[in-house]
Amino acid sequence: MSLGVVVVSHVPDIAAGIKTLLTQIAADVSITIAGGTDDDEVGTSINKIQRAFTENTADELLAFYDLGSAKMNLEMAMDLSDKTIHLYNTALIESAYTAAALIQAGTDLAEIEAQLAPLKIK
């Protein structure tokens, strides 16, 4: 069973920047992003989140987000998706980085979650 990372931010450049940061240390991990609204304005788009879910090639996804409405749209998209998706209320950059690094190293989900726990901020 493979694990992948999904990053949701209000700003397209933030989501893309985090993917750049993660890919450098986790080249073999599927990392997909949803940044901004459909028009690339500041906000979140359920369509983009759904695409990030389907384009991710992993079996099970770990999802990270920045602010409130990103979480609401993530949860809506999770309701509509068949994939197993775990949502973390953790500091976005640090936790997405931690997850990607540990997945790359072959760590299992329980251990990854243990390491994410202290990063919970919301």
Binding site: T37, D38, D39, E41, G43, I46, G68, S69, M72, N73
Partner: peptide, 8 residues
């Protein structure tokens, strides 16, 4: 289409 908290 709303793309914010209020849309969700």
């Amino acid at each position: 289409k709303v793309g914010g908290a209020s849309g969700a």
